[in-house]
Design a protein around this nucleic acid. Structure first.
Lengths: 212, 212
DNA sequence: CTCCATACTAAGCGGTTGCTTAGTCGCCAG
DNA sequence: CTGGCGACTAAGCAACCGCTTAGTATGGAG
């Protein structure tokens, strides 16, 4: 009822393919959709169960608490986006950074249901679960910072400050999850291409080494 | 207790100076601080009253509901940031856009307590209140789009697509409210300067008309 | 002093929350 | 058929929610 576009659910399903049994996976998908639209605190366990087509008590067969549902969504989402960034290849720093930004921004548009929960519900996690997620975020930031540093070291990027530029690149991509809406002209892939271009401009990338 | 830095409260107070009587203002400031840290739905009216140093029932003397507190914060915050953008002056498009971005990004860092509520709690508003806020947001986006278009028309900006560039500029500034933390080395003014520079690069600005 | 309005509090109401308990159902081994 | 086990449900509990009601303290007008 809250999210009805079938292909959006199908895409979500591929993200959660590692979650078994199927009933636990359905519950996670229902929770992600509900958290994404209404927010963690505004979503009741009854909402989640209803969206998964089960009784309210069924939530607690596969998950200890509502917060554990959130943690699993957050953990899997962070792991997925980290692997997007670390699996990037390319001959030069500009190509690698552009590919990383394209993949990261596209993911935040395409899987924005998950991405919203990942990016905006951190404060609802328990301290222990938050610590685990923060470590993943540290590695995500580090992977982008490395790419920027490589470009600066190779003399093909020109930034006033590596930390600040890294923060801006990540920030730009992450915020896609806040404003992106499908069926409004732009596809996730187009966002990815646009953002790859914008980021190369931001870091002052030169497409090939040249004098001056 | 949630936000204890005294100057943060003082800065907030200047934002709400138009709100009277003082008890109503204290209640709004308490609500903004609580909504910012824990989110609208996770904040109880008892939290707000306690932070304002009054009884739970005191909320309802000056405000009809918890949602009306949110609406007033959102309305004042949006009005303030719109006036930041429309009061920008400058001789050329690049100077105007840079000033606007500097002011807008700085505001989202300095008043991030308010900005978080403004940017992340829209879905908790009633349809009527949301419509009013959406109209303010339309004007905010329009004012930035106008600056980008002027630069393109004058031949000093080079963007693949005006709408996309506008969206990226706004998105970059707004997301400051999500990640910015005071007492971590960077001041709001430094963020503003960094972002003004980054945005001019993004729109391919030339500081002065030149061949090529 | 009385009168009355304003600003506030103490107490609590109906409804909802996350989660638990007790029990049912279907399925497969023996 | 019997027995047991995992998946699931019906019902409900204690706590908490937004908000209301009834009443109190204060201060100015006459």
């Amino acid at each position: 009822m809250v999210v009805s576009r079938r292909d959006e659910f199908d895409r979500l399903d591929s993200t959660w393919s590692s979650v078994t049994p199927p009933a636990a996976r359905r519950m996670l998908i229902a929770a992600a959709a509900a958290f994404s639209v209404r927010g963690y605190h505004a979503t009741t366990t009854r909402d989640i169960a209803a969206q998964a087509g089960m009784s309210p008590a069924a939530v607690y067969i596969h998950y200890r608490s509502k917060e554990e549902l959130l943690f699993q969504i957050s953990r899997i989402g962070h792991t997925t986006s980290l692997s997007l960034l670390t699996s990037v290849t390319g001959d030069d720093p500009a190509t690698r950074l552009a590919s990383a930004v394209r993949a990261f921004a596209t993911w935040h548009a395409e899987y924005r249901v998950t991405a919203r929960v990942v990016q905006y519900e951190l404060s609802a996690l328990t301290p222990e679960h938050l610590a685990e997620v923060v470590e993943l975020r540290r590695r995500i930031e580090g992977s982008v910072r490395d790419m920027v540093e490589e470009g600066v070291a190779a003399g093909v990027f020109d930034v006033p400050e590596v930390r600040g530029a890294t923060l801006a690149v990540l920030s730009l991509c992450i915020d896609v999850a806040r404003w992106f809406q499908p069926d409004r002209g732009r596809t996730p892939a187009e966002i990815g291409d646009l953002y790859a271009d914008l980021v190369l401009r931001m870091v002052g990338a030169r497409t090939a080494p040249q004098a001056g």
